[in-house]
Amino acid sequence: MNKADFLNELYAYLSPLPKKERLEIISDFREHFREGAADSKSEEQICRELGSPLECAAQYVGEEVFENFRKGRAKRKKLWTAAFVFNLIQAVISLPVTVALFAAALFMGVLFAFVIPAVSSAAFTVFGVSSTLAVLFLGIVTLLLSIDGIRDCIKNINK
């Protein structure tokens, strides 16, 4: 095998890598051939000492695959952390709001169902009861949100 065969084969086996990287690698091997020639070695001898182009390429490509895998895992971990923080904020914020809304609904319910009817008209009572129900509904929604947040937090921890 001579220099041209070696470099061509190596370049072909490096095809999974980006072109810039392939050219950098080839330039390292070109330098090796140049220095070997200056060391009065024949191209055949240099090729023999280098080993097969496939073996050389396999080490570069293997490193690349491993590196990509490592990067992908780091990225997934980052996403996971963001989701966890979001769920925690959701749970922490929505819990007190839930409690406040339920308290308000209770207060309004008592006010509109018993106190105001005693001193006022039926129409006013209907309006009062419906707004109480609306606040109660909001309370249920925030309660569900906080339960959801807590559940997701637990799910993340168990992951």
């Binding site: 390292d28 080993g51 097969s52 050389c56 080490q59 570069y60 490193e63």
Partner: peptide
């Protein structure tokens, strides 16, 4: 490295890159 450790010299360049 190739001579002293009896490895193929082509294995040194991927190592250098890493």
């Amino acid at each position: 490295l190739g001579k002293r450790l009896a490895v193929s010299e082509g294995a040194v360049y991927p190592l250098l890159k890493r």
